[in-house]
Design a protein around this nucleic acid. Sequence first.
DNA 1: ATGAAAGCGCTAACAT
DNA 2: ATGTTAGCGCTTTCAT
Lengths: 336, 336
Amino acid sequence: MLDVAALAGVGLKTVSRVVNAEPGVSPALEAKVKRAISQLNYRRDVNASMLRRLGGKTQTIGLVLEDVANPFSSALHRAIEDSARARNVLVFAGSCDEDGLRERELIGSFRDRRVDGIIVVPASSDHTFLYEEQRAGTALVFVDRPAAHLDADSVASDNINGSTAAVEHLLAAGHRRIAFLGDLPSIWTADERLRGYTQAVAQAGIHYDETLIRTGLRDSDASMHAIAELLAAPDPPTAIFTSQNLLTIGGIRALKAAALQHRVALIGFDDIPLGDVVEPAISVVAQDPQAIGRAAAELLFRRMEGDTSPAVHQVVPVRLIARGSGEIEPTASASS
Amino acid sequence: MLDVAALAGVGLKTVSRVVNAEPGVSPALEAKVKRAISQLNYRRDVNASMLRRLGGKTQTIGLVLEDVANPFSSALHRAIEDSARARNVLVFAGSCDEDGLRERELIGSFRDRRVDGIIVVPASSDHTFLYEEQRAGTALVFVDRPAAHLDADSVASDNINGSTAAVEHLLAAGHRRIAFLGDLPSIWTADERLRGYTQAVAQAGIHYDETLIRTGLRDSDASMHAIAELLAAPDPPTAIFTSQNLLTIGGIRALKAAALQHRVALIGFDDIPLGDVVEPAISVVAQDPQAIGRAAAELLFRRMEGDTSPAVHQVVPVRLIARGSGEIEPTASASS
DNA sequence: ATGAAAGCGCTAACAT
DNA sequence: ATGTTAGCGCTTTCAT
């Protein structure tokens, strides 16, 4: 900036005024300064600028995802990026792989860079460590799951109603033995979805058979094996509800391996890529990561602009997409 | 930091020494300082620190992707994140949607934050605007395609050999009428892949039929329609090479719609999710985004550490995965 | 309308 | 081993 001032033959402050589009600069000098700026290919240092600026913002937010490479996370990421871009804010993204420690580390790194706000898909089971940060003015929004032991905004899918709808869809097709496949019960969404399943089954007055419940499944292979076991059991399920996308993929593989993909119904929570070209096409309860991301970003920016109203917990609707696999009716042979 | 010094009852510099793990602090004072730090929940401001530090790095890199939400980009992103994390570097990510202007804007925003390096999946056709930046010491690596009019490192898939291999695979199965589906020829990778196709066809001494070449296809729908047309033509292709993942998905849909998925061979460039559960499973030439990302990051960090050797252009091998769709042999009925 | 001086949080260079 | 002073690139405050 000093170089620009020297080249333009003006004072430092005049350059600063031009750069910040502040009033009080004569058109003549402004032109000179602008010429010098482009001649030197000058760019103001946002960090230095915000350092001095009282209550200055770094125009930067941090994003803690489960994994930047998974489809749900990255769709979220994109929606948030778009909101941020409209406000000239840049986003740091990081993956924590469901590891609470990594979550803390990432948030710490964000703090070191003085981000104005943080959006977190939480992994840890205790977020009290963020209390000070929140009080100090960093905006904070939790996505997909609420914060644990911290009063903060959150945005999540309607897990319970989505699960209930999936199970009711299978019940309506005549199924009575419906298996539930889920991730670790310690994960909030996994638990909510199981709760939805349980509610729907209870409401239908069906005997709750816990041998049909398989949880703690961490990837598609685990799901595939669990389903293979279920299908080999004496009284196998006629329908399967896989409550997470990787588990659904495992389900597709397992049914195909057993050549039962046209006899056993399958419905998944969260849409999967190419779910419509598989044979049969996969019925799912689809989340709306774009809407979730947008809502989270809008909430965050509102907080960054000074909104101090009580924390809100937004619930984003899900949508059942019937494509074929969830509409298969129970057959005598499949359960014998 | 002043607060910490005051609470610990020591000088500012002592705190600085402790924070930076510099030698020359007595254990007694160090303990006091550490206590004060955790009591105040203090975190050093990396930006301020690097501002003063001579030749200081912000420990930050920028990443320009086509779209953070697409599978190739996000796999790249993750690999780069992992390399960066090992060096305690945070990454800014942004999408430019093949828009050269947006690419420039993003890079400008990165500059404003004084990132130490930038990894770009290039969209624009002229990168001379980065010359000054590069000379000023910002590390720069191009991914997926080389820089245009700029001498900089690049990492890309082996597009030509991959395409050649795909076509030769189809030739080996007996095909003589092989269609090529591609994106805009102005996109470097699209052009390279067409070149590979052309080479392989020429080498096989087959008549080059330009009616089998469809380029400028921007999404799966365009691909689907183009293929429907090709199949409806008097002398339709017996095999199809879709040179990009979205086009492959369009190909799957088109063949399924025409009920020809078991008669017309299909092979795609770049793997697709669930490519193995579709019926028939889709043969592809798979890229290795992880390897590309890792290589790009390692290159970038080497530059950031001061390596000034001539620019290198790394080529990452691709791998043909035969899953079924590419092994279908030509049938009389399909070509009549 | 313009600029000089002070200071943001921190580290370099130099004391003590 | 510890502290003091100057200054990174910028904005603030206060002159002129």
